[in-house]
C-alpha cells in the first residue's frame, strides 16, 4: 500500500486541508453556536407549554426520537431539539457533504495530477485528508458545547456539564464514521457534487431507518443499519452513560470505510 509513515507524520496534506477549510470551519462553528443559543435559550419560554403538551400526550408524535417522553425537562428538550435532529442529522449532512468532496474535487478539478507527482502515496492522501477534517469537527463540536454551557448558566437551568461533555465526546466517533463514508464515496465517484449528494442521501436515509426502527419494533433490523443507532446522545446527556458497544461499532465502521477507501483508491486509475 505504499505506506510511508515518515511522510504521513509530516501531515503536510492534512495541514493544507485544514487551511483550505478554515473559513468553512469558522462559518459552521458560528452557525451551530447560533443554533445552540437559540434552542437552549428558548427553553424558558417553551417550558410551560411543554409541560402542558406532556400531559396531553402530544409528545407521541415525536416517538421516533429516543427520549421524547422527557421533552418537558431542559435535558429532554435539548436532546430532542438540539442533539437528535439538529446535531445528528444536520451536522451529519454538512460533515458528510464536505468529506465527500475531499478526493472527488481533486480529481474533478484535475489538481490530483500535480499533487500526485510529488512523493505522496495514495494511502497517504486518504489518511491525511481524513486527518485534515478532524480539527473542523472538533472545533464545531466543542465550541458548541461551551456555548451550551454558557447559555445554561445564563438561563439558570440545571444541566450536568460532565454529561454534556460525554454527549459531545461520543458524537466524535459518530461524525468520524460519517466522514469516512464520505471519503469512500469520494473515491468511488469522481464528481464532487454527485459524491456529496450521494453521501447526504446516505446520512438522511440512515436517519430515517433509525426513526422507523424507533417507531416499530418490526423494523428494528433497519435501525441496525443506521449509524445513528449507535450514537445515543439522550443516554449520555440524561444519565451520563456511554454505549460502549455503539461507540465501538462507530469506530469500527470508520476504520473499515477508510480501509476500503484506501484499497479502492490504490487500485483505481486516476483518469482526469
Amino acid at each position: 500500500m505504499n505506506l510511508n509513515f515518515k511522510q504521513i507524520l509530516r501531515f503536510q496534506i492534512a495541514i493544507q486541508t485544514m487551511k483550505d477549510y478554515w473559513k468553512s470551519t469558522i462559518i459552521l462553528t458560528l452557525l451551530f453556536c447560533g443554533m445552540a443559543v437559540m434552542y437552549a435559550g428558548m427553553f424558558p419560554s417553551f417550558k410551560d407549554m411543554m409541560v402542558e403538551m406532556g400531559q396531553s400526550s402530544a409528545f407521541d408524535s415525536f416517538a421516533f426520537i429516543p427520549g421524547y417522553e422527557d421533552m418537558a425537562t431542559y435535558v429532554g428538550f435539548l436532546n430532542i431539539e438540539m442533539y437528535q435532529i439538529f446535531w445528528t442529522l444536520i451536522l451529519g449532512i454538512v460533515i458528510g457533504f464536505i468529506a465527500a468532496s475531499i478526493i472527488a474535487k481533486e480529481i474533478e478539478s484535475k489538481t490530483i495530477d500535480v499533487l500526485m507527482s510529488n512523493p505522496v502515496s495514495r494511502t497517504q492522501i486518504i489518511i491525511e485528508k481524513f486527518i485534515g477534517l478532524i480539527p473542523m469537527l472538533l472545533i464545531i463540536n466543542f465550541t458548541t458545547m461551551f456555548v451550551i454551557m454558557g447559555v445554561t448558566i445564563g438561563i439558570g437551568e440545571e444541566l450536568n456539564f460532565f454529561n454534556l461533555f460525554l454527549t459531545h465526546l461520543i458524537s466524535v466517533p459518530y461524525f468520524l464514521s460519517i466522514i469516512s463514508i464520505g471519503i469512500l464515496i469520494s473515491t468511488l465517484i469522481y464528481e464532487k457534487m454527485r459524491a456529496s449528494i450521494v453521501t447526504m442521501a446516505i446520512v438522511v436515509s440512515m436517519f430515517i431507518f433509525d426513526s422507523i426502527a424507533e417507531l416499530s419494533s418490526d423494523f428494528e433490523f433497519l435501525g441496525n443499519l443506521s449509524l445513528k443507532h449507535y450514537f445515543k446522545p439522550y443516554k449520555a446527556l440524561k444519565f451520563g452513560e456511554i454505549d460502549g458497544f455503539g461507540t465501538s461499532v462507530l469506530i469500527l465502521v470508520c476504520c473499515i470505510m477508510l480501509f476500503v477507501s484506501i484499497w479502492y483508491f490504490n487500485h483505481k486509475d486516476i483518469t482526469v
Partner: peptide
Amino acid sequence: YIPGELAL
C-alpha cells in the same frame, strides 16, 4: 512533472 492539462 509539468502536467499537460495543468490544474492548480
